[in-house]
Design a binder for these strands. Sequence first.
DNA 1: ACCTGAACACCGTTCAAGT
DNA 2: ACCTGAACACCGTTCAAGT
Lengths: 191, 191
Amino acid sequence: MPLSAAAIVEAAHRLLLDYGLQDVSMRRLAGELDVRPGALYYHVPSKQQLLADVAHRILAPLADPPGTVGVEELMRRFRATVLPIRDGADLMLIAFGLNPGLPPVPALRRGLERLGLASDQAHERAQIVMHFALGAVAAEQNAALLHPTPETPDRETTGPEATGPEATGPETTGGAALYDEGLRLLMPTAD
Amino acid sequence: MPLSAAAIVEAAHRLLLDYGLQDVSMRRLAGELDVRPGALYYHVPSKQQLLADVAHRILAPLADPPGTVGVEELMRRFRATVLPIRDGADLMLIAFGLNPGLPPVPALRRGLERLGLASDQAHERAQIVMHFALGAVAAEQNAALLHPTPETPDRETTGPEATGPEATGPETTGGAALYDEGLRLLMPTAD
DNA sequence: ACCTGAACACCGTTCAAGT
DNA sequence: ACCTGAACACCGTTCAAGT
């Protein structure tokens, strides 16, 4: 088969999961697909759009949570999805810049309305929650990359139930606890 | 004079303010300073460390706010400082990864303690607030860059009182109002 | 001590030309 | 229609050698 946008997105996704965002280059991608770099541009308009498509694929499971999952659980899943990807939050920041209505957002809005917020309020609150989530995961990933704790587990061979680090922080609260607390503060209350 | 770390940081700072993070390359910096790229590495260990030093310079005014400025005002100043710099939030994300105690953070902690939080609580809350601020400014900048609103003012020739965009959002609340609301939700209350 | 020259191993993107 | 070849204009970093 001749190569296609879908095949390129899939290869980029694999490269991202296996090596991280830094290693997803158009040239490396071309190598992986056994074509010259220029060939990719017949199928995708730019690296940026390609990355946005990859992000969409990754976040698709958060589009319509099965049953009625709570807002906090939804956002915990967002963190769990993005955290294991190297520079995953940077990718999501790019993707949300291109398309602010990406997957967790509509479900987040609906969930906030279910909690009593009017449509406008829910829209606003959803953005605030997303901003916090993106900042928190980005900070957590950068901290881990830049001064890494000894014994990074390096997921691989771990089953699908692998959730994340939770290495006992040096003087800070663990990333998950901090994140949960932030979510809690941003949840609607009678105020 | 022979070139120095300080001179390199200053040139990088100028390049950042004038052209944005994308144009701060070691090679371009070298050109600006009339040396070959390798010369820079005699004075700075890496681009990453250089950028962290530049970030420190930029955030220095937020280290000890004159008088006793409120927490919300402090964080508004953080936004106002970072927003006019192209990809400023990306830079700050790098910088805070390297050094989580950068300028607004200690003042933020002190301010939160003044509002009644115990030391541990203030530390935790400060991180949460910083995560939100970083995410919010990063999202705002990416949105502006990726699908720019017509008539970007393009600061320059504008006086020192230039504060920022505030273009009437299409369907969303303006960036400043959204940011302020996020801050408000994260401020300590009796709960 | 401080810097150059030159290399190593890369980037994203374009586009005439081939099949 | 789909891809190659080749270029354009770049990257960060290292390091022997010069002064």
